[in-house]
């Protein structure tokens, strides 16, 4: 099953509120991924995001679920900045748990 979460609906057009990211992660993303659902994070209408927001949104799924998260998390309508921040979080999270 595919679950789509529209980030703008939760975080507005600039995603910086980590409390919202945490809530989304705990209440929506982790439960969906744990059931091996596909999760689509749709950034339509979101112009920017902080690294802290993206970290609070996806670092735990990556650390806890690893391949399940890599296989089932999808990002839609990301602009270049948001795409770069998501990529940064992916890189350093994998760097942090590789060989540890």
């Amino acid at each position: 099953m595919k679950k789509i979460f529209k980030i703008r609906k939760y975080a507005g057009d600039f995603a910086e509120n980590k409390d919202i990211a945490k809530e989304l992660r705990i209440e929506k993303i982790m439960p969906a991924l744990s059931k091996h659902n596909e999760v689509v994070l749709d950034f339509d209408g979101v112009n920017g995001a902080t690294q802290s927001f993206i970290h609070a949104l996806i670092s735990d799924p990556i650390r806890e679920l690893q391949d399940v998260a890599f296989d089932n998390l999808f990002y839609k309508n990301t602009n270049d900045n948001i795409r770069e921040i998501i990529s940064i979080v992916y890189r350093y999270m994998q760097e942090s748990f590789r060989n540890s």
Partner: peptide, 23 residues
């Protein structure tokens, strides 16, 4: 980079990566 007051673990906690000030 990577130093946060909330953990010594690389990659930080679920909420903190220790990246903000460095950025």
């Amino acid at each position: 980079p990577g130093i946060t007051g909330t953990t010594r673990r690389e990659g930080g906690t679920a909420e903190n990566a220790g990246a903000g000030l460095f950025f």
